[in-house]
Each structure stands twice: as C-alpha cells, then as structure tokens.
Design a protein around this nucleic acid. Structure first.
Lengths: 337, 337
DNA sequence: GTGAAAGCGCTAACAG
DNA sequence: CTGTTAGCGCTTTCAC
C-alpha cells in the first residue's frame, strides 16, 4: 500500500500545472508568490501528505538540519540528572525548530565521535554539554569555524569563541547562597568539591570567595578541599575537617553533598545541631537524604533550551543572544536551620 | 585559513586527470578499478583530507546514514541505568559503522518526534529502546515499512514485525533464577512488579511460572502483585504479603526491589534470616542496598550493541540475525543465603 | 507573479 | 579497467 517512490516537488508541479519553482516558493515562503497559487499548492501538499526531502534541500542549501549534542561518556555510566534534563530540553527545542539532535559521545580524550561527525558534515552546529579547562573539543570547533553553543561558561582565554555561551549566574548565586549560609556567628567553614578543571566549579568557588571577602571571613576559618570524586576521598576530607573544628560544610555539587552527608552521619554528627551542610547545586539526588538539604537551584532544562534556541536563531540569521545568563533560587531546608 | 568551499569529487578528478566515476569507485570499493589508480586516488584524498558529502551521497543513494533511537521521555526524568547502557553501546556501534544516532523522545502518547523524523526521511532505520503491549509506534514503523529493531521482544501478535527483535533470554533466565530462589523448603513467595504492559515483565512472569510449575508449587503459596510503580503502593503490597505469611520476595526489577527492600526493613525484618529478597534484574541501583541482593544479570550494553549491529547489517544487505537472544548470569548475594 | 535552467556533490547504469 | 551521462530532489539566479 506504500507508494514505491516518494512524491517529489516535480510531481506536484506537473499535477498542478505550475513550475517547481513555484512549489518551492510556496513552501519556503521566500520570494514573491500569489496568494491564490500559494493556497492551491499548500492545499495539494496537505492532501497528498508531501514532505520535501531534507537530503535534497540539504544538498542545495548546504545544510543538514541536524545539531550535534556532545555528551561525555561518563553521562552513560553515571546517574547525572543535570545532563538528562538538559538533553531532554534540547531535544524538545530542536524538535520545535524541525531540527534533529545527533548524539556524540566525546570528550577531549576521545574526540573521534565528534570529529568524524564534523568531517562528514552531518550537522549544522554543535552543543557542548559542559565546559572544561583547555578543552580540545573547543579548539576543534573553533578551528573549523562551526557554530556551537556551550552549556556553561568557557574559561577566560576562550571567552567569546562560542557562538553562544549559556550559563546560570553561578557566581552571583554562589555568592548569595554563601552569604546566607555563613550568616550568624562566624564558624569554620569547609568548601568541598570535585574536579576543579570544570569551569562550573571554578565559578562556584569564585562566588564563594566573593562572599567570604564581603563578610571579611578570616582565611584561617576557610578550608577548601577538591578532587573528592571518590566517596573514600570525600569521607577522609570530612573527617579531617571535623577534626579541625569545621562546623559548616558547603558542597559544590549534589554528589559531593551526598558523600559528605554520609560521612557526617557516620561520624555521628547531628544535623543541623552539630554541623550544618548545604549544596551549591540542587538535584533529585538530594532527595535520598533523610534530612532536607539547603541548596542552590538552577534550572538545567531551561539552560539546555536556551543554549539550543539561541544557536538555532544564529543559524537562521536571526538576532540571538550570544551569552544568555539564567537566574537561580535559594532553597532553604532543615540542614541549615 | 579554512577553505571557503569544501573540496569535491570533481576537484580531485580534475587534479588527478581522471573521471569522477573513478574517484567514486576508489572510495566505495564498488566496481572494478586498477590497483595503481586506486592507490593514487586514496593517497591524494588522504593528502587533501577530502571527505565525501553525505548529503550528496544520501541524495543519490537515498540514504541518510543516520539511525533513530527512540527513547521514552521518562528516560530523561528518571534514573534508569538500562537505557543509559544500551544508548551508550548503540552510539558506539553506530560510530563503528560510520552511522550517526539521532534521538527521538517518543512514546505512544507522544509519537510526534519519531513521526516527523520519519516524515522528513532523516533516518534509514529505527531502534526502539523498549517494547510495550499494543505499541502505536510499532504500528507506525510497520506501516511505513521502515527497517527497525527492538530492544526486548515484541508481543505475540506483533512477532516478526521488526527487522530485528533482540532480547535477553528473559524466560529462561527467570525460570532458572526462580528455581534456585525457591529451592529448599517450600515457603510462600511473592512476585512483585510494576507495569505489566511492558513485555519484559510479561516474560519474567512467564519464566517464573515455568519454574513454579516445575516445582509443583501450590497456587495458594504464590502471590503476585503488579502496578507497584509508586513506593507507597509497593510498601502497601509488602505489608500485605508479610501479613499473609510470605517469606520470599521476588522483584521483577531493580527499582521495585529497592522499594521492597526499604519496606521490608521498615517492617523490622532481618534479611535473610526472617525473609529473603531477590531481583529479576540486576543493576547499579542495587548497590545502594546495605545488603547484597541476589539478582539476575543481563548485559544491557551488549543487547543495545547487537540490536544496532544486526539492523545495520540488514541495511547493508548483509546476512543478519533477526532475533538474537542473549544469555544471563545468576548473581548470588547475601539476601538469599 | 511565475518559469527555465543551472547547479549542489555523488552514484550508477551503460558504453568503450 | 575507465569514462560518459543521466539522474537524486530541491534551491536559486535570472529572465519574462
């Protein structure tokens, strides 16, 4: 029952007794065309359920109507809510523009997937799902001069390389959050984080530093520990800080926060009576905590959506915002009462 | 520094003083071509870093070199390790064949994403990441006669509709696992699951039933409860079964298993002394249990890989296995000692 | 406002 | 073994 050959623009032109140019114009809306002919064409198209071939259009226009979303392989191994939410939003936004998302599992260590996708000219633009220091992928994109947007800010030396650099107001948010976390009597505070090569961690750190500067917090009351990706490392750091008399634990992300919480509870600490804990990134992971954790909330989905949308606008030569900044919300829960 | 226009097959033909057909043949390997000319061409191509345009090739061959991976939106909201692992493997396999994966977030309730991708002829084939009863997506694929493979078996009435129907030996695995779980003295057993419209749950149930039949387990000792997607529902079911004297809890998947475990511990039961628990699906989620949970292990990544590979073989007109079945492993841990 | 014709870059008969 | 030629389906000058 399926027609062998797909119906083409020529078929329609013949059936309607007009030229294919006219059909093309009716569909694209470009060029001048009579209202009546246009309606006639659109109706016919609707009736026979015609769809232009993107391959042919792509060849003629030198476009693919595809965007690459670059995801680190670790996204596949670990449960990282942030990536899921951004990916979801990106797919939805792309759909709204009649674009498709192709997945590239690439990092600087394994750039092949993205590289070949670019070599093959399979996409019109790229979305980088995270930003890292000295990212070879960014260099690759810049060299080839292909439009791309980043989720998260680029490091200072690469500022402006991306077509779109979308981020939350990490610094402002972390500044405000730290300010409220540290209010009241001055106590020793620990800032715990994982990999500092991630720009996002650098920004959070910067926000924190702004806050302690404002508060004129003495340096000897501040303890920073990073590289705590493994639970054991985090536990060790927590033990050490407890020993040193730290009473406030600020975690750079949700995962570190859960590690820290576990370590704190193992140490027999009562929260918030004995010690306080909070996270600079809220996520559903914090839900598995027996106690509500105060956290800074960012809208991952919105960020993905914006990163995708502005890139698409650029590809369409519309006005776009090259560096959209999104807000934050401070969520207060029992852990800091 | 980037050459404005991409280098084409014609450029090479001209530079090398041969026809473009020759170039085409050298690249594709199809048709006869002299060893020496071929080398000459390949060398030149290598030197100038030429890549054929997939858009042009696609137009000529009526192919896209893209595959769609259909994922339920819930994948984006929930932490479901299975999807992550299959997706990872699928992307890798596609990469190995120089194909790209485009993501369609679609379910029967929201088929638009897949539908439009097909309407636009953006892909050569489709991979369905799960199978459900009466899936509208399957009908859509079959109607359009587009090659597709499923991860998981199709329901009986749709058997054979897919190009490739890849699955683990759910029935055999669940049979064997149940047999070993139920060994020893005959006790009341509960089978807990979520949505029975998923074919995978039906298969697991079938495997379980085979086992109890073999063991001549009396019907009044078997308690099945399904639709336990919400923790509260699961807890209620567990309470009820405990009341009824059930001592063995077999869970159809990792999530239900964690719910059940929590409910059991809340009820003050000691495992495995008081009650035993096991899961018909092993995953990293079970790691967050304080006690090792016996489980049936399937290799999600391998399944995704096979589903992708066999589909690709089919698209290349190579011999392929339309219904690959993968094995399982029984993992014994403390929960059933 | 509409049409003719020349591509876009590659594949695939069909000759030689 | 290699070249000629005619598309694939759509966009886009440039005339009319």
């Amino acid at each position: 029952m399926t027609q062998k050959r797909n119906i083409t623009i020529d078929d329609i032109a013949r059936d309607l007794g007009v030229s294919k140019t006219t059909i093309s114009r009716a569909i694209s809306g470009k060029g001048r065309i009579g209202e009546s002919t246009r309606n006639k064409v659109m109706q016919y198209i609707e009736a026979c359920n015609y769809r232009p071939s993107p391959a042919a259009r792509g060849l003629a226009e030198n476009k693919t109507y595809n965007l690459a979303l670059v995801l680190p392989k670790s996204f596949m191994q670990l449960n990282i809510p942030f990536y899921r939410h951004t990916m979801n939003a990106i797919c939805e936004e792309a759909f709204a523009w009649d674009y498709n998302i192709v997945i590239c599992l690439s990092t600087e260590e394994f750039p092949e997937s993205l590289r070949r996708t670019l070599d093959n000219r399979k996409v019109d633009g790229v979305i980088l799902s995270r930003t890292v220091e000295n990212d070879g992928l960014v260099d690759m994109l810049k060299e080839r001069d292909i439009p791309f947007s980043t989720i998260g800010s680029l490091p200072p030396q690469a500022r402006g390389w991306a077509t779109v650099e979308a981020d939350h107001d990490q610094i402002g948010g972390c500044n405000a959050f730290t300010l409220s976390f540290l209010q009241g009597k001055q106590e020793k505070v620990g800032l715990l984080g994982n990999d500092m090569r991630y720009i996002v961690n650098q920004s959070r750190c910067a926000g924190f530093n702004q806050a302690v500067a404002t508060l004129k917090y003495p340096e000897e009351c501040i303890y920073m520990r990073s590289g705590l990706g493994k639970p054991a490392d985090c536990t060790a750091a927590v033990r050490e800080l407890l020993q040193l008399g730290v009473r406030k634990f600020l975690c750079m992300d949700d995962e570190i926060c859960m590690f820290t919480l576990t370590a704190l509870m193992q140490a027999g600490k009562k929260i918030p009576e004995d010690v306080q804990i909070a996270s600079l990134f809220d996520s559903e992971k914090l839900n598995s905590s027996p106690i509500g954790i105060s956290a800074l909330r960012f809208d991952a989905a919105e960020l993905g959506k914006v990163a995708c949308r502005e890139l698409l606008k650029c590809l369409r030569d519309e006005n776009y915002d090259p560096s959209p900044i999104l807000g934050y919300r401070i969520i207060s829960r029992e852990s800091t009462l």
